[in-house]
Amino acid sequence: MACRILRKPHYRIEEVCRRWETPDADLAGLVIERELTLSVVAAGVPVEVGDIEQVDERDWFPIPEGRRYLIGAVDLRPLDAWYALTAGVQTITAFAAEPGRYVTILGQGDEPGRYTVTRDLLVVRHAELERFEAAQARLQQGAAPAPALAAASAAAGSAPRGPVPQYEWDAFWCEVAAMMLFEGPPESLAALVRRMEAWFAGRPKQPDSSTIKKKLSPLWRRVAPEAERLSA
Rank of each mutant, 00 (worst) to 15 (best):
L189S: 03
V123N: 02
L122W: 08
Y167S: 01
E65R: 11
A190G: 10
S158T: 14
V47C: 06
E48A: 06
Q141P: 09
P163R: 12
T91Q: 08
E130N: 01
L216S: 06
A96W: 08
E53S: 03
P46Y: 04
V123K: 02
L79Y: 13
Y11W: 15
D110E: 12
R131N: 09
V45A: 09
V124W: 09
T91D: 11
V40W: 03
R119V: 00
R77T: 08
P204A: 11
P62M: 01
R101Y: 03
F61Q: 06
R4I: 13
K215E: 13
D51W: 09
W173C: 11
L6A: 12
E187S: 07
Y69P: 07
V74D: 04
A152E: 07
R221Y: 13
S231L: 14
A42I: 10
C174K: 14
T116V: 04
P9I: 14
E15Q: 10
S209F: 02
A73R: 01
P62K: 05
L122M: 07
A97Q: 00
A43I: 00
I52K: 04
D56Y: 04
I13Y: 14
V124F: 07
R194I: 00
T211N: 10
A224P: 00
M1F: 15
Y167M: 03
R221Q: 12
K215T: 13
W220M: 05
F132E: 05
L106N: 15
H10L: 07
G142A: 05
K205G: 03
F182A: 11
K215F: 15
A97I: 03
D75N: 08
F200N: 04
L85P: 10
V123D: 00
I63G: 03
A154S: 00
R119H: 10
I32D: 07
Q90R: 12
G107R: 04
G109S: 06
A144C: 05
E14T: 08
S209W: 05
A152W: 02
L27R: 05
E48C: 13
E65T: 12
D56R: 06
V103W: 05
I5A: 15
G184L: 09
L219Q: 07
A43W: 15
L30R: 15
A191R: 09
A73S: 04
V47G: 08
P99F: 04
L30Q: 14
P218C: 10
E197C: 08
G88R: 02
G162N: 11
V31M: 12
C3G: 15
R222V: 07
R125P: 04
I105R: 02
E14Y: 09
A94W: 02
R203E: 02
P23K: 09
R101V: 00
A148T: 00
P185D: 01
S153G: 05
L106T: 13
L85I: 13
D120V: 08
K205M: 06
